[in-house]
Amino acid sequence: MNDSTPASYFTGMYADAPDPWRLADRWYEHRKYTLTLASLPRRRYRRAFEPGCSVGVLTRMLAGRCEEVVAADRVATAVEEAAARTADLPHVRVRRMAVPEEWPEGSFDLVVLSELLYYFDDERLDRLLANTVRSLEPGGTLVTVHWDHEVPEHRLTGSQLTPVLEARAGLVPGPGFRDPDFVLGTFTRPFADGSLPPTPAEAEGLV
C-alpha cells in the first residue's frame, strides 16, 4: 500500500465500536502507555500535543505530567469519547483535526506520535514530521510508539519507521525501547548551539 490510509477506514472502525482497538481495557495497551510515560526525560512538561488521540486513554495519562495537553483526532466520535474521558481535566483540550493538513497554533515542549505515522504516504509523513519539528521547542521531547507487525492498513512497521525518524533533520535520537510487538523512540530538538538538555540524572545533580 503506497497511499495514506483513507479516512473511511477510521470512521468505519468507530462505527463498529466506540473503542475499536480496546485501548481502555487491554493490558497490552496499559503496559505500552506506562512505558511511554516512563520514557519521558522530564517530570513535567509545559504543553503537549497528541495527534491521533483516539478515545483519550493516553491523553488522560499525559495530563498528569503536563500543564496543558492539546489532543486531536480526525474522527468525531473518537473526539467525543476523548473529551468525555478527560472532561474533569480543565487543562486538556480535545479537538477534531486531521493532521498534517491541520495543526494547532503555538509551540510544544512535548509531542506524542503514538500509533500514527504508519498511516501516511511519504509526502504526508514528511509534512507531519516537518510540522512536528517546527512546533517542537528547542530542548523539547518527541516520543514515538508504533506496532511492529505488518498490517494491511499500515504502510510501515515500527522497525521500518525507525530509520526515517532517526534521519530527520532537527531531531536527535535518544533512548528507546524495542518490544517484540512495538518500537518506542525518544527524540530531542537541540538548542541553537547544538546542545541538549541535561539528562534526568544531570538535572538532579547526580553526575
Rank of each mutant, 00 (worst) to 15 (best):
M1D: 08
N2S: 11
D3L: 14
T5Q: 10
A7M: 10
A7K: 12
F10N: 04
T11Q: 00
M13E: 07
M13G: 00
Y14Q: 03
A15N: 07
P18L: 13
D19W: 07
R22G: 10
L23Q: 09
D25T: 11
D25G: 00
R26H: 14
W27K: 15
Y28S: 15
E29I: 08
E29Q: 08
A38W: 14
R43K: 03
R44P: 12
A48N: 10
E50F: 08
G52F: 10
C53N: 04
S54E: 07
R60K: 11
M61G: 04
M61Q: 08
A63M: 04
A63I: 03
R65M: 01
R65V: 01
C66H: 14
E67P: 05
E67L: 06
E68Q: 13
V69P: 04
V70S: 00
A71Q: 09
R74T: 04
A76K: 04
A78K: 05
E80G: 04
A82M: 05
A84K: 09
D88N: 11
H91S: 06
H91I: 03
V94N: 00
V94I: 02
R96F: 07
V99Y: 02
P100A: 12
E101W: 13
E101Y: 09
P104I: 03
E105H: 04
F108G: 05
V111A: 00
L113Q: 14
S114F: 04
E115L: 11
L117Q: 02
L117W: 05
Y118A: 13
F120M: 09
D121S: 11
D122C: 11
D122A: 15
R124Y: 15
A130N: 02
A130E: 06
V133R: 08
R134A: 15
S135R: 01
E137L: 12
E137I: 12
G139R: 00
G139V: 02
T141L: 01
V143E: 01
T144D: 05
H146I: 00
H146D: 15
V151M: 15
H154N: 13
Q160V: 14
Q160E: 15
T162D: 00
V164G: 00
V164M: 01
V164L: 05
E166T: 15
A169S: 05
A169K: 05
A169N: 01
L171E: 00
V172M: 03
V172N: 01
G176E: 01
G176C: 01
D179K: 03
D181K: 12
G185I: 00
G185V: 00
T186I: 06
F187I: 08
A192G: 15
D193M: 06
G194K: 03
S195Q: 08
P197T: 07
T199L: 04
A201T: 13
E202I: 01
A203N: 06
A203H: 10
E204A: 12
G205T: 10
